[in-house]
Design a protein around this nucleic acid. Structure first.
Lengths: 346, 346
DNA sequence: TTGTAGGCGTTATCAC
DNA sequence: GTGATAACGCCTACAA
């Protein structure tokens, strides 16, 4: 720490320092900062000058302690490197920041155990609200969240029994709809590749499988999954594995996300398979690349930024005592059929 | 707030509550949490039980206030939706979290003005260290950072006059090296497309341009830039614009990042241009997709995760009084030539 | 509109 | 090894 602490014995200026310099009481300075309308213009001005000359920056710890309001929203996501969460985060940050809230963000690495520890950490910061991902928190974690007595939003997926507020989509329905679209295209030998296999991917797969079964089109060997994290590379590998396991008889594959789907597409090209003639592909999440790659990739579009925006907005509304139309929001999805799946019947 | 506050008049349990239940003094509970070795096993056990039954979670605001240590590291990045920063963040989070530090993250939207306000906000949380992006903070912002008297790391680019610590690469050198490689491949009519044009992109462009000028190969009409944010779509647009402005005479284009490069590649394919025969392309950042797309995309690889790791590690070291070999780290880059540029002379 | 007193929950310091 | 006391910097109440 050499050199960093009290370098010039200049312990950070406090409210009292500003007050002394401005010749007012501490509370007046506090008011200038928090309720400027309740202070005369004259004093307001003098205080602001003192603040400037001292380079005063309020101590938020003291403020939180005294007022029991931290201006912090805690957010837990399962992965920092998954683009999907970026877009959601952007929405959260845009709204939270606009409302004067800071975001304390943790990465749970898709582990409920890690999540429990991290949420404990978040709660120790006395956040005024929490946004967490999905519904598979540990029991202990859910208890903590509940007894924190702050608004909680579970996002990304629609839950049967949310802890409090909830925004997302039905991944089960999305998976089912993809199956229906592929069937409508006339595909009969339909496969699935999935990675990570978190709760949402499992829902997508379940919906997809269910819809295939309805038409007697489900074939176990056409499904390949792994707990490994998704990647473009893995998409290629899984496709190869699936093709060899199924004797190359597949004519369509639903990939649990666009990373896998792009990987499968690129690998198909290297294998000189024509997409969609020899093999149709559909992804999930609708990355920007999916719309521009050749052939363009069918995918399921989810308004992620909007989801983040609305998650944060629900919280601000609750925090400001505005009435909420509903504690649960289905943000919806849209299956976007592109060149990677036959467009015949659309 | 209806229903959230003191729902069951259960104001969060405090150290005092735990102490009373365990029949000890508050300070003993504090010790159990922070210096377990200084408390007898017996009391330690009793206290832990009380903590569990009360579901006690320490109030970090009070702790910060009393101890002047917040266990928070403030981080400012220019964009949440740019994958580049994800990887860096992951490195920061992995190391910071392991060291018991929380990360308070802000998105400055590439605006020094916004950045100033956000860094003020960060500083109000009394972070024990700060990590910021680049060196183009406002003067006021730099003053704040300096007088905060905490370790500061400026990351992403190597700076001539860092505020404190610095880790990154020379974007100028990287741009120059790309130019040299393209020239070595035999390309003569070499262009550039750039978007956002932040400090780092400008450095890349300057280095690239300089190296072209050395060989008398710089042609102003072959350079197209825009302040718009990068995207795959924009890459296609810029390429089209450049081709028409240059009369289609280009044989190689350096794109300031892989978003643009992928967009240019996909657009080339749609225009039935053969890459690299008709047009060579090189990007920057080396996204995973770049290695897998067909033809694979040449790009400049930067060890972003490692950069985040080392940025955080420098901070932990300084915070723990470990000696630093150097306050500035050149994390290096590597130009990876792939199928999108002729491999002839390599 | 402005100021005074007291306390928020924790930890540092110093006794025992 | 354990505990009493006094900060830490700010804000809520109430008073003027």
């Amino acid at each position: 720490m050499a050199g960093y602490t009290r370098n010039s014995k200049s312990k950070r200026a406090t409210l009292a320092d500003v007050a002394k310099l401005a010749g007012v009481s501490a509370i007046t300075v506090s008011r200038v900062l928090n309720h400027p309308d309740k202070v005369s213009d004259d004093l307001c001005h003098r205080v602001r000058e003192a603040i400037d000359t001292l380079g005063y920056i309020p101590n938020q710890s003291a403020s939180s302690l005294a007022s029991a309001r931290s201006k912090v929203i805690g957010v837990a996501i399962p992965s920092l490197s998954n683009i999907v969460f970026n877009d959601v985060l952007r929405g959260i940050y845009d709204i939270a920041g606009g409302g004067g809230y800071k975001v304390l963000l943790v990465d749970t690495h898709y582990s409920p155990i890690e999540e429990e520890g991290m949420i404990r950490t978040l709660l120790s910061q006395s956040p005024e609200a929490m946004i967490v991902t999905g519904g598979d928190q540990t029991r202990a974690c859910q208890r903590m969240l509940s007894s924190a007595a702050v608004p909680v939003v579970q996002m990304m997926e629609l839950l049967e029994h949310p802890l409090d507020m909830n925004i997302g989509i039905s991944h089960f329905n999305a998976g089912a709809e993809v199956a229906k679209k592929l069937i409508a295209c006339g595909y009969q030998r339909i496969g699935f590749i999935g990675a990570r296999m978190d709760a949402r991917v499992q829902q997508r797969m379940a919906g997809f499988k269910g819809a295939l079964q309805c038409q007697n089109l489900y074939q176990a060997p056409y499904f390949a999954t792994t707990a490994e994290p998704s990647s473009i590379a893995l998409g290629g590998e899984l496709l190869r594995a699936l093709l060899s396991a199924s004797g190359g008889k597949l004519d369509a594959v639903f990939c649990c996300n666009d990373d896998l789907a792009l990987g499968a597409l690129f690998e198909s090209q290297r294998m000189h398979l024509n997409v969609p003639k020899d093999l149709a592909l559909c992804g999930f999440n609708d990355f920007e690349a999916s719309a521009f790659v050749n052939p363009s990739l069918s995918s399921v579009h989810v308004p992620r930024y909007q989801m983040g925006v609305q998650a944060a907005q629900m919280i601000l509304d609750v925090l400001n005592d505005k009435p909420l139309p509903s504690k649960q929001i289905d943000i919806g999805f849209e299956v976007r059929m592109r060149q990677s799946t036959c467009m015949a019947s659309l």
